[in-house]
Every structure is written in C-alpha cells, then in structure tokens.
Amino acid sequence: MKLSEITNFLESIAPLNYQEDYDNAGLIVGNPSQEIKAALVSLDCTEQIVDEAIDKGCNLIISHHPIVFKGLKKLNGKNYVERVVLKAIKNDIALYAIHTNLDSVQNGVNAKICEQLSVKNPKILAPKSGILKKLVTFCEHKDAAQLRDALFSAGAGNISNYSDCSFNIEGTGTFKGNELSNPTLGEPNVREYAKETRIEVIFKTQDERKLLATLFQNHPYEEVAYDIYPLENQLQNVGSGMVGKLTNALSGLEFLKMVKAQMKAEVIRHTAIIDREIKKIAVCGGSGSFLLKHAIAAGADAFVTADFKYHEFFDAEGKIMIVDIGHFESEQFTSNLLIDNIQEKFPNFAIRLTEHNTNPINYFI
C-alpha cells in the first residue's frame, strides 16, 4: 500500500497538531507515494532497528521517538542520528515517528499504561487548550438546517461526549451586489434585507480545511460570509497524562510491587511510601515531572512516570508518592498499541514488532 495510507491513518488517531512545540512527529524520511511492503514498529529508531528492518524486508519503520529532533545541517555520518538517516535513505526505508501526539490522545500511550495497571475510567490529567476554533456563518432561515447538518457531518459541533452542538440566532442581514454579482437573493445594485440565521459551531483545528470546503459547497450564497475565531477552551479528551482509580486499593508496598511486575521495571525510584492506601493514581509516559502539580491537584495517591530529577522528588511534600519507573519502561508497550491499531485497520498488512530492546540505560543490581 502507499505510505500515505498508513501515515494518514496514524494521523487520524493522533493528529500532528497535538504534538508539543519541541517535538518532530510525522514523516521524517520517505515519499508519501512510496509503496510499502512491510513495517517494523519500535520505541526508538536506531542503527540496530534499521538493520533489523533490512533483514526482515520492511521498508517502513514506525517509532514512538523521532530520530531527528533538531534540524540537521550536514549528513556525513558523524553521529548515530546522521548514520540512521543515511542508512534509511540508502536502503529506501521510510521513517515515521508518532510521539507526543500519541501521548496526548485519549486512547494513546497513557491509556496503555492505565490498561497495564488496571486503572478504571482514566481521564486526561492536563487537558490541552488552543486546538479548538469556532466557525460563524450566516444564511437564510430556510437553508440553515441543511447547512448545519453538512457542517456536523464534516466534524463540527463535537464537544466531549456530545455531537451536533451549535448556537443559532435569527436576525437581519444586508448586502448589495455590484453589476458583476449574481446574488442568490435580490438584484445587483439594490440593497437587500434578508432574514438570516447566524450559525456558530466549534471544530478542531486540523479539520479547518475540510470544514471550509464543506461550507463553500453547501452554502447557497454566491459570496459566503463567515468568521473563524481561535479558542482557548480546553479539549477534555486531549492532553498530557491520565488519572483514574485502581480496581482495588493497595498498600504503598503492594502498589510498588504491582507496578514493578506489570511495567516490567528492573528498578523503581520513589518517594517515601505514604501512610494511606493507594487508590487513585496519575500516569504519564516518558518525562512527566511537569505534571506533578496536576497529579496532586487531581487528588492522586501516586504518580507513575519517569525522569524525575533529584530535587523534584522533594516537591511531593508527602502529598503523593512519586513512582519513577524509567523512560523506556513507561513507554515500552506503545509499540504493541500501535500494532493493534494498525492491524485492526489494515488486517492484511505486514506489520512486525521489533525483537530488540532499545533502552540505552542498563542497571547493575
């Protein structure tokens, strides 16, 4: 199949505009029209992974972490990033990364952690803002219902668990076309007064092009009047981390043992075991210390994540137990998540899980 078929699907479940500013998710190497025979999925993209892809006849590598975070000024193989890119290009292997955009969605990286830890009904810990917009348009009363339905079908009007959401006001619009106009209502060079409905709908920024195309195709006027406003509203099912409750409350020690086993962690760094049962927990795959205040505010008893610095452990202040299981350990099941999604969408496509552990950190126990 075409590379674009796979990347379009991945970006439908984790839109690129959900990634953090520092990130570089998306197609890093490859042509969207390239024919893909098979794909290899891994957490990281290293030289070892590219060699494995070559051995297994895979001409696409889908990794969670991007091999390129910053711009490359030269490609001469002086470091592992350049060597990976050069080897991929030489062997006609496409590289695709699905990183913080997959972290941010309801059924992404953090949902997989919650599944491993038997966390029930998890919700986004820190919802994102700045990814919603509002469309306002005007049309005659008689055309409003048909236009609203078309906009809803294009993805507008969805708010959390509700669809077909809009606000409508009836009023009077005025316009006068010149001699080159062909107005739907009235005549050129005559000011017209029309009984119109103002329609307001919210939409996600990634749907703007599709929504405007739908608006122009379905609006009866020769010249479509519309406004688009950026919103700071938070989208409750998109954001960082997740929080939910365990099926059964556990003591601090029992909780640590469970996390160690379920997340296959060789070692856990943690703050002092708190003197209460662990019931509500927050999670964040990868580096999650920036969410500590959110986890405390949410009333979590423990926060499972990675990459806490020494002084950041003091910030728990006895209110929560920080459980640092390691970056790789927190995200290692992401590859399984991706394979499950791709196989469900493309059941006949050859998708393979890497045989290599790419964790750069080793433990001497």
Results as ranks from 00 to 15, higher is better:
residue 1 M to V: 11
residue 1 M to H: 07
residue 2 K to N: 09
residue 3 L to T: 11
residue 4 S to K: 15
residue 4 S to E: 11
residue 6 I to D: 03
residue 9 F to S: 01
residue 15 P to T: 10
residue 19 Q to H: 09
residue 32 P to S: 14
residue 35 E to M: 04
residue 36 I to W: 05
residue 42 S to K: 02
residue 42 S to F: 09
residue 44 D to H: 07
residue 46 T to L: 12
residue 50 V to P: 11
residue 51 D to S: 07
residue 53 A to K: 05
residue 61 I to D: 00
residue 62 I to K: 01
residue 63 S to V: 08
residue 68 V to S: 02
residue 68 V to K: 02
residue 72 L to R: 13
residue 76 N to P: 01
residue 79 N to A: 11
residue 81 V to F: 08
residue 82 E to L: 11
residue 85 V to Q: 02
residue 86 L to R: 00
residue 87 K to T: 10
residue 89 I to N: 10
residue 89 I to Y: 07
residue 90 K to F: 00
residue 91 N to I: 03
residue 94 A to R: 11
residue 97 A to R: 03
residue 97 A to S: 15
residue 98 I to A: 12
residue 98 I to C: 14
residue 100 T to R: 13
residue 102 L to W: 00
residue 103 D to E: 11
residue 105 V to P: 10
residue 105 V to A: 08
residue 112 K to I: 04
residue 113 I to H: 06
residue 118 S to N: 15
residue 120 K to Q: 13
residue 134 K to M: 10
residue 137 T to V: 14
residue 140 E to F: 07
residue 141 H to N: 15
residue 146 Q to D: 13
residue 154 A to C: 02
residue 154 A to F: 07
residue 156 A to I: 00
residue 158 N to P: 00
residue 161 N to G: 12
residue 162 Y to V: 06
residue 165 C to R: 12
residue 169 I to K: 03
residue 169 I to G: 01
residue 176 K to N: 04
residue 177 G to V: 12
residue 179 E to G: 11
residue 180 L to G: 13
residue 187 E to R: 12
residue 197 T to D: 09
residue 202 I to K: 04
residue 204 K to V: 02
residue 211 L to D: 10
residue 211 L to G: 07
residue 212 L to V: 06
residue 213 A to W: 01
residue 214 T to W: 02
residue 217 Q to P: 02
residue 220 P to Y: 10
residue 221 Y to A: 06
residue 222 E to W: 09
residue 227 D to F: 00
residue 231 L to V: 06
residue 234 Q to L: 05
residue 242 M to A: 01
residue 242 M to S: 08
residue 243 V to F: 00
residue 246 L to E: 07
residue 248 N to S: 15
residue 253 L to P: 06
residue 254 E to I: 07
residue 261 A to W: 07
residue 266 E to N: 14
residue 267 V to W: 03
residue 267 V to L: 14
residue 267 V to M: 14
residue 272 A to M: 04
residue 277 E to W: 06
residue 281 I to F: 01
residue 284 C to R: 09
residue 284 C to W: 03
residue 285 G to W: 02
residue 287 S to E: 14
residue 288 G to S: 12
residue 289 S to H: 12
residue 291 L to E: 08
residue 294 H to Q: 15
residue 297 A to H: 13
residue 298 A to C: 03
residue 303 F to V: 07
residue 304 V to Q: 09
residue 305 T to S: 15
residue 306 A to N: 08
residue 309 K to V: 10
residue 312 E to A: 14
residue 317 E to R: 13
residue 321 M to A: 08
residue 326 G to Y: 04
residue 326 G to R: 08
residue 331 E to F: 00
residue 334 T to C: 12
residue 334 T to L: 03
residue 335 S to P: 05
residue 335 S to A: 15
residue 352 R to A: 06
residue 360 P to Q: 05
residue 361 I to Q: 00
residue 364 F to L: 14
residue 365 I to V: 10
